[in-house]
C-alpha cells in the first residue's frame, strides 16, 4: 500500500506500507519539477515492489531512501 496516511494504514493492519508525500497524491509530488517527480515515482514504486518481495509478519513501513543520502 502506497499512502501518506501511514499511521492509519498501520492501525488497520496493512502489512506492507510505503509512505507517499501527500494525501491527495500518493504516487506523485506536484511540488517538485516534472523530472524530479518522475524519479520520485520510480523510486516509490520500486520500493513497493521491494516490499511485496519481502516477508513481513506485521504492518511494516518501507521508507523510500533519500537519493542525496544514498550518494553520501
Amino acid at each position: 500500500m502506497i499512502t501518506n496516511l501511514v499511521t492509519i494504514a498501520e492501525q488497520v493492519g496493512a502489512p506492507r506500507i510505503v509512505p507517499g508525500r501527500g494525501i491527495p497524491y500518493p504516487s506523485g509530488d506536484p511540488n517538485v519539477p516534472p523530472s524530479a517527480e518522475q524519479s520520485w515515482r520510480r523510486r516509490l514504486v520500486q520500493r513497493a515492489l521491494d516490499a511485496v518481495a519481502t516477508a513481513v509478519e506485521r504492518p511494516t513501513i518501507f521508507e523510500v531512501g533519500d537519493v542525496e543520502e544514498a550518494h553520501a
Partner: peptide
C-alpha cells in the same frame, strides 16, 4: 483532486 487531475499518475502510477 487538483493535483491528481492534473496528472492522474499521481494517484495511480501507471506510467512508472
Amino acid at each position: 483532486t487538483t493535483a491528481a487531475n492534473a496528472d492522474p499518475n499521481r494517484i495511480v502510477p501507471l506510467d512508472t
